[in-house]
Simulated assay, not measured.
Amino acid sequence: MSWIHRIPGIGDLIDLGQDIAYELRRRKLDKQDEKTPILFEDEVLGTFKFWREAGSFETRRIWGNAEVAVSLNGGWGERTDYTEEVAAVALGARIFWADQPGWQTRIEECIRRDLFELAQEWTADAEETITPDDLITRIRIDGIGFEPGGHFCVWYDGGTAFGGGHGVTVVGNLETGPEYAEMHG
């Protein structure tokens, strides 16, 4: 008897009304909460502010000679019980930060290994030559993101290494180091 459709009763309308009221209260609270910053304090890296649009905690720090964006990512979104997880990701960031020269060397080696040939192709079109060291000096670090499990991602502005308007991303893990670098954009 598939032609018989269930007609909502008063109980269903009450349930629906309660669901709508709950959703409206939640949205009202979210609007109020949007004005209240959510902060995470790290004793080494400083104060991170929750960026609701991205679901990550953000700050700015000095890496080498550049100020970079630093993000602690974990897909926390609407959750409010993430403190221990954020602290674990921040611990990975601190480990990374403690050896800036070592990590910078390893990241640059990865960029040279994975992107030098591509950079040569791009500059050959412009009838110029590029060396592995030129590649590194033509890009500029923009940010570093950290995720659960010791994963990280380092973002660079590609500068003139790839004709402008392109970026470089290096992905890796604290245990294994930089895994690969790619050009995008």
Rank of each mutant, 00 (worst) to 15 (best):
S56Y: 05
G102Y: 08
D133K: 07
F57M: 02
T105S: 13
A124I: 02
E67I: 10
A66P: 02
N73W: 00
A90H: 05
D125Y: 04
A124P: 02
T83N: 12
F146D: 09
A66I: 12
E67N: 09
W103Y: 13
Y156P: 05
R60V: 13
N73E: 15
R113D: 09
F57T: 11
I95W: 08
A88V: 05
G75A: 06
P132W: 00
D81S: 11
W97C: 10
H151C: 07
T59D: 04
F96C: 04
A90T: 02
E127I: 01
T59R: 11
N65S: 10
L135C: 10
E109R: 14
H151P: 00
E147I: 03
Q104E: 15
Y82Q: 13
E67Y: 11
G102I: 06
A88P: 01
D134Y: 03
I107R: 09
N65M: 13
I139E: 02
L91Y: 15
I136M: 02
W155K: 14
P132F: 02
A69K: 08
T59L: 03
R106Q: 13
R60K: 15
G77F: 03
G145F: 00
G77M: 08
A88Q: 14
L135F: 09
I62H: 12
S56M: 10
A88H: 11
E85K: 11
G149C: 05
E78H: 08
I141K: 09
C153E: 12
Q104N: 15
P132H: 00
C110R: 13
D133P: 09
L115Q: 09
T123F: 01
W97T: 06
G143V: 04
P101Q: 06
F116S: 03
E121V: 06
G102N: 12
G75C: 07
R79N: 08
F116W: 03
T80L: 13
W76Q: 07
A93F: 10
E78R: 10
T123E: 08
G102P: 10
N73M: 06
E85Q: 12
G64C: 01
Q104I: 00
T129Y: 08
T105G: 08
W103N: 08
W76P: 01
A90I: 05
I111Q: 06
E58A: 12
E127P: 00
A90Q: 04
P148N: 11
W122N: 01
L115H: 00
V70E: 06
I141R: 15
D142V: 12
Q100M: 15
G143H: 02
R60Q: 14
E58V: 14
I107L: 11
L135K: 04
A88K: 14
N65W: 15
C110Q: 10
I136Y: 03
D99L: 04
Q104D: 14
R140H: 12
G143P: 11
W103F: 08
E67K: 12
W122Y: 13
T131R: 04
F152Q: 08
F152G: 09
Q120Y: 00
R112T: 10
E67H: 06
C153N: 11
R79G: 01
W97V: 00
G75D: 10
C110P: 06
R61I: 14
